[in-house]
């Protein structure tokens, strides 16, 4: 059934789930929510599977007219979500009634919010995923007049995340990095500068990657034999400006990579506005895996409470 009709599409609003699996070897980017934690929690709060499709809302949100009464939630960055002009809480499921309007105001913290609805959005799947990847024609961003459909369940609203668990999307973040695979090709001095300095986020940052303005004095051979590029990989091209590769990254690359931002810290990166600041902290692969496991365990426990 019709859940929303789009009055205004917002700056860049797309369906995203947890991305495509199995097509990297054919050159298809994984895509999926940039803030995977927020999308998964959003789904848990409305009683969905964690990987159901939500809307990723960027900076300036859309205006959506509810065509039905159902339970929804907004998680992630605080882009001032409102129903009929009244602020609604983030990280908590709410009931929206037929005829009400969901809209967004000023971005207050973070740059990406996630709208999840009971039952998920039933957008078209391409290769097993509803994540939009426009360059290859896999869906497109919202446009005025679009109708968003789904099959919501009858359920109660009011499920919220305990406040201590709500992420703090600072404009100035420390993120953990596992070194490699090409750090040995980069001079020790550049590697130690990379970890010591504070990096600025460039305005040319998007779902493919976050560009940093770091002016590292690189002098290494920046071209390498092309290899598979992971989520969070940090390219260091010859110009000394690193790029953190995100969900819509190309599957392979030919630039040196100094390290990989660990999965649990990627939401902090993806919620930074242009001009935001990042520092990198080296961790071992074991520490990175421990952090990922702890996050997964939390999500599993919360999921058990709501399903």
């Amino acid at each position: 059934m019709k859940l929303f009709s789009v009055e205004k599409p917002g700056l860049y609003t797309t369906y995203q789930d947890l991305g495509r699996v199995g097509y990297l070897k054919y050159g298809v980017p994984a895509s999926g929510a940039l803030d995977r934690f927020a999308l998964q929690v959003g789904n848990i709060l409305v009683g969905n599977e964690r990987g159901a499709a939500g809307l990723e809302v960027t900076m300036q949100g859309p205006e959506l007219l509810a065509e039905e009464t159902f339970v929804m939630a907004v998680t992630g960055g605080d882009l001032s979500p409102m129903i009929n002009g009244r602020r609604i809480p983030l990280w908590k499921s709410v009931l929206i009634k037929k005829g009400q309007v969901l809209e967004f105001g000023q971005p207050r913290q973070g740059v990406r919010a996630y709208l999840t609805v009971s039952g998920g959005f039933h957008a078209k799947k391409y290769m097993g995923s509803r994540s939009v990847y426009e360059p290859a024609g896999l869906g497109r961003k919202l446009e005025k007049g679009d109708e968003l459909v789904g099959e919501p369940r009858q359920q109660k609203a009011g499920t919220g995340l305990f406040f201590t668990e709500i992420p703090d999307y600072d404009r100035d973040v420390d993120v953990r990095v596992v070194k490699g695979p090409h750090h040995e090709q980069i001079s020790d001095k550049v590697v130690s500068d990379f970890f010591a300095m504070t990096h600025d986020v460039s305005p040319q940052s998007n779902r493919m990657g976050y560009r940093l303005q770091s002016d590292l004095a690189t002098n290494h051979e920046a071209n390498v034999i092309s290899d598979g590029v992971p989520l969070g990989g940090i390219q260091l091209p010859g110009n000394g400006q690193p790029i953190i590769l995100l969900a819509d990254r190309q599957t392979t690359g030919g630039y040196t990579r100094i390290g990989t931002v660990i999965g649990p810290d990627l939401p902090l990166v993806a919620q930074l506005p242009p001009g935001g600041k990042i520092r990198f902290k080296e961790v071992s692969v074991e520490e990175a895996q421990e952090a990922a496991k702890q996050e997964e365990q939390k999500l599993r426990i919360w999921e058990r409470f709501t399903r």
């Binding site: 596992v178 490699g180 695979p181 290899d227 598979g228 992971p230 989520l231 969070g232 990989g233 990989t260 931002v261 660990i262 999965g263 692969v285 990175a288 895996q289 952090a291 990922a292």
Partner: peptide
């Protein structure tokens, strides 16, 4: 082997 973060590994 080179770790590519916590969820991938490069086999060279």
């Amino acid at each position: 082997f080179y770790p590519l973060g916590e969820a991938a590994v490069k086999c060279c």
